[in-house]
Design a protein around this nucleic acid. Structure first.
Lengths: 262, 262
DNA sequence: CGAATTGTTGATTCCCCTCAAACTGGGTGG
DNA sequence: CCACCCAGTTTGAGGGGAATCAACAATTCG
């Protein structure tokens, strides 16, 4: 799978209109061990030796439930935790100077959020749940401590950060050099891939995000997103009914992704 | 200074046409200590305690000279080193599926290249010198080793990676939501800022990159870059003669960056 | 000096944004 | 229970900004 498909996550949006959300309460009694987590290799410990996972177990990560529309952390908040998504979907967004908001990523099960907070000790983006979700809060200070004297964990962490850089490379490529059809095709194929890896259908799924959010992420207007969906449907590449998507011709979509239509 | 200005680095380009370049020979006798490096806080050790800099000194980093047009590392090369730029300017680029090349960054003195290699042990982009340059090769394995048991160094490294993520956030924002004038203004203001920090004039400088490279980086064609320069000149925001730039009205440019013209 | 590279400028085309209207489904309250 | 509203989506019409195609000037280089 191409680098672009591996990586996608963010475009511009017209105007803040989401329901007012209260931050999630910081404390939560639920704690658990990494070794007993069902996420397995989807999550942080991916690629870590068993002995190292046991070291991760030493401090139990707090879990938090986040309801649809709630904010997990906000741009400007002090950075203390990474969050591993246990279930549900999040969007990552940031505010532009003119007040519009820019979606720069969608996170699903096993993906890590908050990496941009390390640089200045402050979250550079906000994370908002697109459906009821649960996350695992990983204290950065403790992670750092644990990583000292454990080059394995350290490297896993470095790799995660580096992968985020690659993801953004791809998105930049998409934004810098692809047209509307290519962007949406790339987005759908990327989504399909990530769902498949998580054991869901790769060809039939429900979008958790609105046309406006997709548009913001992909650098186009919501109208263009909608129109492009319609075009794809007319070409029998997929079937779309509001947020329900069925990919009919993945081959054709892949072609559209590579070269635009025609 | 806004996040966008802090971060810029990469757009699409028509066709590979650069002179064939040979990779830089891997070995070079020149080695030196971080503590005796004139880059000071511009470079990696920025923010590290003196005692830690001494630890960095334990292994001397190899220096390499790279001539204009030469490739420092190539997409797909095995990742072994980060490179800190000691002098000169580089472009970072990657190949698209259709053979075009995409510039995704320009690196100057003190900036670190190669962070995208950590993810899969392979460089995801190529680095090419835009003028005669010199770099400091930092072996990743040794850095990891040294960072184990040194949480200070570890965090500095994490911060550098995170800052790269922020830089790309900004570029995504730029590509996703700004028009040609805003992009070029942002690019010039960012360049100006970086030059100023390095002790050069913030208002008069020589571009090391072609219109095509700027265009690739900013997601527009070289013709549009050229036209936008002309527009800025007509508006008396700057004076441009080929690659020589003199910023006349930084205020005005900043306004153009924020809202487009008018 | 011709060839190649880089930059500028003009004419034309077209993709996507903007503005606008209408439809849907869900939720609410009279 | 139905009217109403609202957020989200679809679709149309029109215009604008940037891409494309093309010609030409200025430099560099072999």
């Amino acid at each position: 799978m191409s680098a672009v498909l591996e990586a996608l996550t963010s475009p511009p949006e017209p105007r803040v209109r989401h329901q007012t959300v209260t931050s999630v309460p910081p404390a939560n009694p639920l704690k658990m061990r990494c070794s007993s987590c069902h996420l397995g290799e989807l999550c942080l410990p991916c690629g870590i030796a068993v002995s190292d996972v046991q070291r991760l177990d030493e401090f139990r990560f707090g879990r938090r439930k986040v309801k649809t529309g709630q904010t997990l952390y906000r741009e400007g908040d002090r950075f203390q935790f990474f969050y591993a998504v246990r279930s549900g979907t999040f969007k990552s967004k940031l505010m532009l100077a003119d007040g519009r908001e820019q979606v720069n990523g969608f996170c699903m099960t096993g993906e890590i959020m908050g990496l941009d907070g390390v640089a200045y000790g402050t979250h550079a983006s906000s994370a908002i749940a697109l459906e009821d979700a649960e996350v695992c809060a990983i204290p950065y200070a403790q992670l750092t401590e644990l990583a000292a004297g454990n080059s394995g964990l350290q490297q896993v962490f470095a790799r995660i950060m580096s992968r985020e850089i690659l993801r953004e490379h791809s998105l930049m490529t998409l934004l810098g050099s692809m047209n509307a059809e290519e962007r949406l095709a790339a987005f759908l194929l990327n989504l399909s891939h990530r769902l498949k890896v998580r054991g869901y259908s790769a060809t039939e799924f429900h979008l958790r995000m609105s046309r406006a959010e997709i548009g913001s992420y992909l650098g186009m207007t919501l109208e263009t997103v909608s129109r492009t969906f319609s075009t794809f449907q007319q070409l029998r590449l997929l079937e779309v009914d509001k947020r329900h998507i069925r990919l009919v011709d993945v081959e054709g979509l892949t072609r559209a992704f590579k070269t635009g239509l025609n």
